[in-house]
Design a protein around this nucleic acid. Structure first.
Lengths: 335, 335
DNA sequence: CTGAAAGCGCTAACAG
DNA sequence: CTGTTAGCGCTTTCAG
């Protein structure tokens, strides 16, 4: 293994000069810098990560904790992960993958052993058991999602309440008077995941504000459930003409089910969704939707973390404004 | 930060004794072991990962390189990743997540800096540009998937050729005489990913062997394509009664399309798939399928790597035998 | 602008 | 069965 002293000898300088040439933490003359770079190239030198971490108290590794649980749309998780990794690399950091399953002990382990410098957590619950730990951990963290109180923490997410509102307002603007929300699976609500509840809040508030009849239906994510849900919606709310879907796997089957029940989308029924743009575009009838900007959130989570590692102050809460894209699934209500 | 010398002092032993008590690399009397453990608990000691890596030349971290490209079913990737992480933890290792995008430079970086001890690669192509690098890298690796030559490497995957055969044989056994394969998107074949081609080989060989009429259709993974594919199949092969689907996102839409075209599954058309069991079970008509055992492969990839890290010899190629589960989508051919 | 030297916290000979 | 000690390869004072 080629080490810093080898490079130093080859370049005719001291090891510290090589180190400084690499880090830029003190001025180096152009000439020595060139010689050092050349030596590094010739020898194929790579600084030893462990040695670096030991001497500098920085591992340049971030932990990313991904959820495993039911009711979470996997491609969204994967997209987060990829954008976190990609952004981390731009800041010369790597990403260690942890599963939710490891729990608090896992967080403590990677933080206390200095394996990682900072942490990103997904799928935060309102009363998340990891919150107290994060507040005392000596390493910064960012949560994707919001707990009941973000006091002393850093959180970022789509503004799901506003997303629910935007969907309803879009439908209201098209003249719809009765709307329904097809939500995430019941277990997502039961475990008090904030984002699901916030969509409901926004949806209901906006519907009330506009004087619309509304109902909320948590739903399994199995496509087999689509037909039953569609039938129930129409039975319970015969005047229904607007539907908001916050349940990725159910989106396409649900639209199919409506059409099989004789309702044209958007002729008889307008459908909007809160989901990744990619999904909304891939449905047979492209769906008007509020984007779930996973990649953007992942990127910004890393950026927040980098600022915290720099010692910069960052806001406790970052809510991304919803962006609704009109596609083919919504239209003015029939006379 | 509490360090090993603190623990040693508190326990009244030397630092090396603490180290050995932790690693078990030499016998420690029950009494001292107890005192060491107690001191560790009292002080909340956690060995510094970087220091450990530096002194022992082992980081206890594995790299996992995940594909990003089109035509790959994301949930499968995620399931691999989770099983790799989970299994790695059983062996006291962590997992660093890399994207394919980082390319060979990324592999070299994490290997040469000793950030990781070993690597797992997914989505291997027949002529994978990373192969030469892996052969010279001083760290062991395991590939999920097979390149053209696995000489000097370690590869593991489902036996896709046998999987294709098993599907055809199941259909042949039910009396079907004309079968079609609905395959992965064309780009998967173009970039010469072995698994897609092997399915074709197995499918074709078995069909020929049993004297069945057969055809192969690479297909986009968009559900919108389902109807067109279904129509084409029936047009080109009117006698068709058996279909093998090797394209996850298309499976359900395709069955829907057949039914909309007036063909009952399995009454008129038997359908088998090569896909995760979870998917096969979730379709409205549960699909007879060869399981894509992502979790099993992930686990075994880690186990192979651990053996290599131990210095144990492992086979170059591990092919997992396909397992076909009969469900509701296949039936004897109509008289 | 550059060097010398002291650790960072741990492991693994070596010595008993 | 346990202790002493010499590094692992790098960063960062301290000195010049």
């Amino acid at each position: 293994m080629v080490k810093i002293t080898d490079v130093a000898r080859q370049a005719g300088v001291s090891p510290s000069t090589v180190s400084y040439a690499l880090s830029g933490k003190r001025p180096i003359s152009d000439d020595t810098k060139r010689r050092v770079e050349e030596a590094i190239r010739e020898l194929g030198y790579r600084p030893h990560a462990g040695a670096r971490a030991l001497a500098s108290s920085k591992s340049n590794v971030l932990a990313l904790v991904v959820p495993l649980r039911a009711g979470i749309h996997i491609p969204v998780v994967m997209q987060f992960a990829v954008s976190v990794v990609t952004t981390a690399r731009r800041y010369d950091h790597d990403v260690l993958l942890l599963t939710q399953e490891e729990g608090e002990e896992g967080l403590r382990r990677v933080a206390d052993t200095a394996l990682v410098d900072a942490l990103i957590l997904m799928d935060v619950q309102l009363q998340d058991p990891r919150l107290p730990l994060l507040r005392v951990l000596e390493r910064p963290s960012v949560m994707i999602g919001f707990p009941a109180s973000s006091e002393g923490l850093t959180c970022i997410d789509l503004d799901f309440k506003a997303a629910g509102e935007v969907c309803v307002e879009h439908l209201a603007g098209l003249g719809h008077r009765a709307v329904a929300l097809v939500g995430s699976p019941p277990e997502v609500y039961v475990r008090q995941t904030a984002f699901a509840q916030r969509v409901v809040q926004g949806f209901t508030a906006a519907a009330d504000r506009h004087g619309l009849a509304s109902s909320v239906h948590p739903c399994e994510a199995a496509s087999g459930a689509a037909r039953k849900v569609a039938e129930r919606l129409l039975r319970e709310q015969p005047a229904l003409t607007g539907v908001v879907v916050h349940n990725e796997p159910l989106l396409e089957p649900l639209i199919d089910a409506f059409e099989q029940l004789g309702l044209r989308v958007p002729g008889d029924l307008s459908v909007t969704a809160i989901c990744p743009d990619e999904l909304a575009e891939s449905v047979r009838v492209p769906v008007t939707s509020v984007a779930l900007p996973s990649a953007d959130i992942g990127t910004r989570a890393v950026e927040l973390l980098m600022r915290k590692l720099d010692g910069t102050e960052v806001p406790e809460a970052t809510l991304l404004a919803p962006r609704l894209t009109e596609r083919a699934s919504t239209a003015p209500r029939n006379a």
